[in-house]
Structures are given as structure tokens and as C-alpha cells.
Design a protein around this nucleic acid. Structure first.
Lengths: 149, 149
DNA sequence: CTGGACATGAAAATCACAGTCATCTAATGT
DNA sequence: ACATTAGATGACTGTGATTTTCATGTCCAG
């Protein structure tokens, strides 16, 4: 399956536009929260899209490299992916219980990070900031959101 | 091997002082850089200390929980450990090439993170900040430090 | 139609790390 | 001293996510 898609409008910095890759990218874009590759794969299967796990991983990997998807790790080190909205937020506050996330204004952090190169001589500075907590609904003893893992 | 060490001066927040655990802790403390559990295990073996990988993992796990060791993840998600010096710095700038690291003054980040709970309603806020780059020696085309992985 | 260039997915391989459990050790009671 | 015993140890096995392999399918150009 699949074919010589590379010649079909592949631009530098773009994903080879095959039906499955598009399906993966769209399924992720349709989600609000961070998803594991496995979970995304399940969603696709449930939606009737038959895609191999390998392809999901490959596509996510590419999407991250292209910068259109954000990658964080949960406590266990598992990778969670989320489509990056247009307004290029890069830092989120994520609930450790239900996975719900919201963007953070990371202005102070960005400014701090930007100054590091100048202060240390290091080059090609990259930074990741991960903030987690327990969201309000999950903190309530009742009405816990399902984890549907 | 090992014995009833628990009664031998175990205080709350201290590691059971067995020879092997001490060996692990000391081997890590002797290192400047972040090390993977595997690598630390190899160092110990090379030094003639025969410790099982399980014990290395267990000890590192405990040390992290006790707060005397810092834990970060490399690009591949592998856990890297480093003895935390007395002056309780929690954020480092690590070289992606050689692993060399230096502490950062993360004051601005800490203050920013501290305010998040109040601003969002989330509880039990935790944050990790990882900053990487290429250090000055590694940026020079010659004289690259060995990676010895 | 044919060949080349990928894409694909099932299965197998990796890999770090977490459990298991029989065994061993040293502190303690006698 | 010696038996007792809580707890440490490590070879081995389990686990679960991610990656690689490889045989096969598909599309496009010539």
C-alpha cells in the first residue's frame, strides 16, 4: 500500500501527503488534549480508519520534526502528542489525572531562556518547560473524569 | 547478600546504609555529569564493584525520591541522574553533545511557576525545565569531547 | 506495460525499567 | 557463640512503548 507520493507536491517541510498520514494528522488535529500514539491509533481504528501502529508512530515523528505537533512526556516517560494550534503556544499546564491541558503564557520563561545563550556561551539553545498539576474538576472527590486509557 | 540494615541508623529521609547503596551513591556523587543508570552500572563494574542492575535502579529511585539526586530525560526519553550539590540548584543547562552541564539561575522560572496555581486553580503544581545547547568546547570543530557511550 | 521509489503494516526486535523470588547478611535476642 | 530474622541483593523474567525489518502494495514516469 502507498505509492510514490514523494513527487506529489512534497515541499520542504511538508508531510508526504498520503491518505493515511493525512488521516493521522487530522485525527490529532481534531483532539483538544495530548494523546499517546497508542490512543490515537485506537481512535483511528474506532473511526473506521485502518492504519498500522507503525504508520502512526512514523507520522507523529515526522509531524513533531516539522514542528506542527508538540511532544511532551507523562510521568512514566510515555510520549504524548498534541496538534499545535496556529497561535504557536509552546507551553501547557496539563492535568496529571485526566490529561486536560491549557496553554500558559510563558513570556517570562521565554525571555529567561533567550538570555541564556548570551550569558553562557552555549549555542543552539533549546528548552522545554513542562508544568503539571491537578485540574479543578479532578481535584473534586466526586465527578472525576474518566481516564479511558 | 545484605542484611538487616534498616535498624542501622536509618533516619526518615535517609538511605539504608548498605555497602552497595553507598557505593552507588558515591559513584554518582563522584560524577560531574548526568549519567544513565546503565552507564553508572558500568562504571561501578569497571571499578570492581559488583552490583546488580536492579540495585542500581532501586538505589537511584530512592535517591531521587529523597531529593539528593536530580532526574532529567535525554532526547530519547532515557532517564539521566546526577547528584545534586548542596546548593540545591534544580535546573541545568546541558550540552547535547558531551553531556556537560552547569547550573542555571532559574529564579524567574520559579517565580513564574509559583504563580501558576493561583492563576489557574490547578493544585499540586509540578514543573520541569530542561535547557540544552552546545557547549563552547563542543561547538569548536576540533577538540570534540569523546561521547563514550 | 514496466520499473523504480516509496509507503505500509504485521511481526519481530529493542530497550529501559519494574517485578519476582530464592538466597544471603548482619544485627539482635538468647 | 548460635539461632533468628528483617531486610537487601541480583539473576532472571515480565512489561510496555517505540523502532526496525521486510515482504508486499501502490502510484507515477517513461
Amino acid at each position: 500500500m502507498g505509492g510514490r507520493f514523494a513527487t506529489r507536491g512534497r515541499k520542504v517541510g511538508a508531510l508526504p501527503s498520503t491518505p493515511r498520514r493525512r488521516a493521522v494528522a487530522e485525527a490529532l488535529a481534531a483532539e483538544e488534549e495530548f494523546l499517546s500514539a497508542r490512543r490515537l491509533h485506537r481512535r483511528l481504528a474506532e473511526a473506521g480508519v485502518n492504519v498500522g501502529l507503525s504508520t502512526v508512530y512514523r507520522t507523529l515523528h515526522d509531524l513533531v520534526r516539522l514542528g506542527s505537533v508538540d511532544l511532551v512526556r507523562d510521568d512514566a516517560g510515555e510520549r504524548l502528542y498534541r496538534h499545535r494550534p496556529a497561535n504557536d503556544h509552546r507551553h501547557y499546564l496539563m492535568c496529571r489525572h485526566c490529561g486536560h491541558s491549557r496553554a500558559l503564557d510563558a513570556g517570562p520563561v521565554e525571555r529567561w531562556a533567550d538570555g541564556i545563550a548570551a550569558r553562557t556561551g552555549f549555542t543552539e539553545i533549546r528548552h522545554t518547560v513542562e508544568v503539571t498539576g491537578i485540574c479543578v474538576p479532578c481535584a473534586a472527590p466526586d465527578r472525576r473524569r474518566p481516564e479511558d486509557r
